[in-house]
């Protein structure tokens, strides 16, 4: 379980996050949604410690991340897996070495144990045949799957995904969503997904938090979202519906 309390973040006098609190439960796919530029990525990066919040705290199962010392942070970090918006694979390493990378950093496994673990993870995302390819030689959807394999290789407990299906065709996007959902179930992860794709929200959103201009406006789940009150959220949903209808017409 991850709790965030009263997070605030300002960049050069511009408030990007104001007083955001939420609880992301274990074994659930938690989603942060909102329009472009509302601070979703900044929130995610603050939770994983890439940004220091100006105020507020992030608790990983009770451990206050930003108050921890380096050693404690490193332990928490070894339990975090993150899938970046553009996959962020290391382009000088093969697929297998990318997945192996966190093991080299954190784990005391022997080389053959690492081999096994890498194979298991690549198999889990269906990419064992691409192990020796370079990231530039595989498709965007495959890169995302490698990113997921790299995120879970440490037997992580927390999985963060920034727009996991941006830039993918609907079918591949659906497959990535399902994969994240299944993995969350299978390993009982605390998963936090940033998205503005309504399809995935309706498919896998077990907890949904809606952000608008740095504020948390609404929280709920996929069953309650269509009856939500706030006007900003209704506008957001409606515009997306419009887009879907438009897509259907084409």
């Amino acid at each position: 379980m991850i709790e965030i309390k009263n997070i605030q973040k300002t960049f050069q006098g511009k408030t990007v996050l104001s007083d955001i609190s939420a609880t992301f439960e274990q074994g659930k796919t938690n989603m942060i949604i909102g329009a472009s530029g509302t601070g979703k990525s900044v929130l995610l990066k603050t939770i994983v410690g890439l940004f220091e919040p100006d105020a507020g705290s992030v608790f990983y199962d009770g451990r206050d991340f930003h108050q921890s010392n380096r050693k404690e942070q490193k332990i928490i970090r070894s339990e975090i897996g993150m899938l970046f918006q553009g996959s962020a694979l290391f382009d000088s390493l093969t697929v297998a070495d990318n997945v192996r990378f966190p093991l080299n950093v954190h784990s005391k496994m022997s080389e053959s144990e690492k081999d096994d673990r890498v194979n298991t993870c690549l198999k889990r995302v269906g990419l064992e045949q691409a192990a020796n390819k370079m990231p530039s030689e595989i498709s965007g959807g495959m890169q995302k799957r490698v990113g997921i394999a790299r995120a879970i290789v440490m037997k992580s407990q927390y999985l963060f995904c920034d727009e996991p299906n941006s830039g993918l065709d609907p079918q591949t996007a659906w497959m990535i969503d399902q994969l994240i959902h299944e993995i969350t179930d299978e390993f009982n992860l605390t998963t936090v997904i940033v998205s503005h794709d309504m399809n995935s929200v309706m498919e896998i959103g077990e907890y949904i938090m809606f952000m608008y201009q740095g504020l948390k406006i609404w929280e709920g789940n996929k069953d309650t979202i269509l009856d939500a009150e706030p006007k900003e959220l209704r506008d957001f949903l409606f515009s997306n519906k419009l887009v879907r209808t438009f897509k259907g017409m084409q």
């Binding site: 990066k45 994983v48 410690g49 890439l50 942070q73 490193k74 970090r77 070894s78 975090i80 993150m82 970046f84 918006q85 553009g86 962020a88 694979l89 290391f90 382009d91 990378f101 966190p102 950093v105 954190h106």
Partner: peptide, 15 residues
């Protein structure tokens, strides 16, 4: 390039 493709962020998240 590593910076703009978030590879540096990926390293930082790994600690």
């Amino acid at each position: 390039t590593m910076r703009i493709t978030e590879q540096i962020d990926a390293l930082e998240v790994m600690g």
